[in-house]
């Protein structure tokens, strides 16, 4: 991408992976600003979609990177509740220090991610199938363990003021502190994808894994690391939600699988890998969150919510596709563009 940023002409701007997603975002924002009125445009209105985007965004980022690398991780659907339950059981039920609970949750995420990565690398079974397996396996493990350990499937947790301040409070009563974690995650993943050598490796792996390996890229290590990132991120979202809402349930989080993939695709990442950007993923997540929450500010009957969500998302993706075609069909006079 760096060869494009050097020449900031309009044509190049239109060909950036995130241009389409930005236009999609502007479209849905204008739509709800018109139909949602003053409340939607206010700070509390912005909090509505930012709060939803934050927790979704933290999982969508590593999922996006995985998808760029040509992989998929749907085990996040049970890693989120696993993270919630881990912190709630360790610190809520057994009253261990909150740091131990947080550490346990993140460690579980890393371990599950590691297992996912190793299985994908060693077995060559498509990651969709591998993580489908771990999706069920982790769900079963969480349920079984929580019933054995606590005798129930819903555990309460009262975090101390420091943990609450860091992970589960509302700034000014409206903005979740999770938003800042999301920004931090976006900066981190943005650096990895766009400014470190890992980024080129990831893009190359999604383009053609065999050539990437032949070119000397440690594809196995990168794949395993990416799965560990998504496991840890999902566990993080789970534990911060448990601290925020003071309770954890074994079965919450399945909707994240789909929502994260939608956000990533709306953000311009190619489903088949090899193309995408972190800014795009962030914009896609915000677009999805606005579409999902904006409806409550409008006068529309909420029964139609799903229909409107569907149509707006389709529009956003279509806009994206148009711009991606522009970008992929582009061949500068002095030689072929990298993507």
């Amino acid at each position: 991408m760096s060869n494009q940023t050097r020449r900031p002409a309009l044509g190049n701007l239109l060909r950036r992976p995130e241009t389409g997603s930005l236009l999609g975002l502007v479209t849905v924002f204008v739509f709800f600003a018109v139909f949602g009125g003053a409340d939607f445009a206010s700070a509390t209105g912005a909090a509505s979609w930012l709060n939803v985007a934050a927790s979704l965004g933290i999982v969508a980022l590593p999922i996006g990177l995985l998808m760029i690398a040509g992989e998929l991780d749907i085990s996040i659907g049970s890693m989120i509740p696993a993270g919630s339950m881990a912190v709630a059981i360790v610190s809520g039920h057994f009253h261990a220090p909150i740091l131990v609970g947080i550490g346990t949750a993140l460690a579980i995420g890393a371990v599950v991610g590691f297992i996912n990565g190793v299985l994908v690398v060693r077995t060559a079974v498509p990651s969709f199938i591998v993580t489908l397996g771990t999706l069920f396996a982790v769900a079963g493990l969480v349920l079984g363990l929580s019933v054995i350990l606590t005798g129930t499937t819903s555990v309460g947790i009262k975090a101390g003021p420091e943990a609450k301040w860091l992970l589960g409070h509302f700034i000014g009563g409206t903005f979740q502190v999770t938003i800042f974690w999301w920004i931090a995650a976006a900066l981190l993943f943005g650096f990895v994808l766009h400014y470190s050598h890992y980024g080129n490796w990831i893009l190359a792996m999604g383009g053609d894994k065999v050539s990437a390996r032949n070119a000397g890229i440690p594809t196995e290590r990168v794949t395993i690391l990416l799965f560990m990132c998504s496991g840890v991120s999902a566990a993080f979202v789970g534990l911060s939600q448990a601290i925020l809402y003071n309770s954890a349930q074994v079965s919450a989080g399945q909707s994240y699988i789909f929502n994260a993939i939608i956000s990533v695709v709306v953000g311009g990442v190619l489903l088949t890998g090899g193309y995408g950007s972190v800014v795009g993923i962030v914009l896609g997540t915000i677009t999805f969150a606005i579409v999902n929450q904006g409806i409550y500010y409008t006068g529309f009957d909420a029964n139609w919510a799903s229909l409107i969500i569907g149509i707006l998302l389709l529009l956003a993706v279509l806009m994206n596709n148009t711009f991606r075609k522009l970008a992929l069909a582009y061949s500068p006079a002095r030689g072929k563009s990298r993507t």
Partner: peptide, 25 residues
Amino acid sequence: QLPLPASSFGNPTAVAEAIKATLLK
């Protein structure tokens, strides 16, 4: 009734924000 779409199910933040928005409205 305030019916919420399936994409909000199991996502406490989405449910909380939907309720907040409805109360503000």
